[in-house]
Design a protein around this nucleic acid. Structure first.
Lengths: 189, 189
DNA sequence: AGTATAGGCCAACAGCTGTTGACAATCCAG
DNA sequence: CTGGATTGTCAACAGCTGTTGGCCTATACT
C-alpha cells in the first residue's frame, strides 16, 4: 500500500482485462485468443486493450507474469521435498491463475517460450538450489525436474491422456514424488 | 505394391503438400501455419490443397498420421528396455517426420489433442504392454512414461530450457533411461 | 463555478484468412 | 484425331484480425 502513487480509477478495468486475457489465452492459446473476445469477456471495448497495453503482444507480456510461489525447500525435512513439490505444482496448475496461458502460448510463440525460460531460470532453479548438495548439478537437476512436472501438466491438463487424468492428487504425489526426490537428492545417473 | 490401384500423377503433388504441411504445422503450429504458406512451400496453388484435402482440418488430419515405429520390447533384455525407449524417442523427435506438428497443434487444437490420445492408446500402450508383468498396471505405467517422454520433448525441443538442451544424447539416455525402466519393471509407488 | 484530463465507446481501416467457382492446360482411352 | 477426365491456375468472395483516430462523458482540480 506504499508503492502505489495513486489508485487510478482505471485500475479495475486493467485488472478485468488481465483476468479475461489470462482466461482466453489459457483456454485458446495465443493466436486464437482474440482481442475482441478478451474485451467482450472483460465487458469493455477492444480499443481499451490497446490504450492500456499497447498491443496484443504487450497484453500477453503483462498477462504472462506469474509467481509460482515456490515454498522454501530448505525449511522442509529432506525426504518430503519431492512430495511437497509435486503437490505444490498441482496446486499451481489447478489454481485460477491460468498458468496454461503461458504454457499454451509458449508452444507456438517464440516470445512466450523465452518468458518460460526466464521463469525457469529465475524461480525454479533458485527455489530448488537449497535442496541440492553439489551446486554444480543444480541446473541439470532443475531441468530434469522441469521435464517431469511440465510433462505431467501437458499430459494431464492439455492432452488429457485418460490414465493420467484418472489418477487422483494423492496417487500422483505418491507416484511422482519419489522420482522428483531422486532427481533432487539421489545420484545423477 | 498391391494395394495401390493406380499410380496417379497427382500423387507426387499430394506428397509435396503433405511434406510442406508437416513442416509448416511443426514450425508454426496449427493456427499460424496458413494454407497459402504451405502451398507456396510445396510450389503449387492454394486451391490444390482444398481439392485434395477438402479443408485445412482435412489437411492436418492427413499430415498428423504418424507411426512411432516402436520396437518390439519383448525381444530385448529386460534391463535395457528403458534406455532403448529413451533413445528411440529421441530418434523420433529428431527425425524429419516433424512429430512437432502434432505436439504443437495438440496444445491449442482439440481435434489434434484427440489424435494424440489415439496415438497413445493405439501405439504406446500396446508397445509397452509386453514389458510389464501385471497387465492391470499397463495404462498407468504407460501414462507415467508419456509424461516423462513428452515433458522431455517439450522442454528440450519446444521450450528449449538451456540445461535440457545442453544434455547430449548419451547423457539423456543415462539419466532418463533408468527412470523409464523403473516405471516399467519397478514397483508402482 | 469552469475547465483540463482521464476513461470509455464507436466506426472504420488495411491486411490476412479459408474457401470457392470459373476457366485453361494436359493427359489418356476410343 | 476426338472427347472426356484429370491437373492446374487465376481472381475473387466474405469474414475475421489487430489497430487507429475521433468523439463523447464523467471525474478531479483550481
Amino acid at each position: 500500500m506504499s508503492d502505489s502513487p495513486k489508485a487510478r480509477r482505471s485500475d479495475a478495468t486493467k485488472a478485468a482485462i488481465l483476468a479475461a486475457a489470462r482466461e482466453r489465452f489459457g483456454h485458446d492459446g495465443y493466436e486464437r485468443a482474440t482481442i475482441r473476445a478478451i474485451a467482450t469477456q472483460a465487458e469493455i471495448d477492444p480499443a481499451m486493450v490497446m490504450r492500456y497495453f499497447g498491443s496484443k503482444e504487450g497484453l500477453f507480456a503483462a498477462a504472462a507474469q506469474f509467481d509460482l510461489r515456490l515454498p522454501d525447500l530448505g525449511a522442509l525435512p529432506r525426504e518430503e521435498i519431492g512430495r511437497v513439490l509435486v503437490g505444490h505444482f498441482l496446486d499451481v496448475w489447478e489454481s485460477g491463475d491460468n498458468f496454461f496461458a503461458l504454457l499454451r502460448a509458449a508452444v507456438t510463440n517464440e516470445a512466450a517460450a523465452e518468458r518460460m525460460q526466464q521463469l525457469f531460470a529465475t524461480q525454479v532453479v533458485p527455489a530448488i538450489a537449497p535442496a541440492i548438495t553439489d551446486p554444480k548439478t543444480v541446473p541439470i537437476r532443475a531441468g530434469l525436474i522441469a521435464t517431469q512436472m511440465l510433462g505431467l501438466a501437458l499430459c494431464r491438463y492439455v492432452l488429457r491422456l485418460p490414465p493420467v487424468v484418472a489418477l487422483q492428487r494423492e496417487q500422483l504425489i505418491a507416484l511422482i514424488g519419489p522420482s522428483i526426490q531422486q532427481r533432487l537428492t539421489g545420484p545423477l545417473a
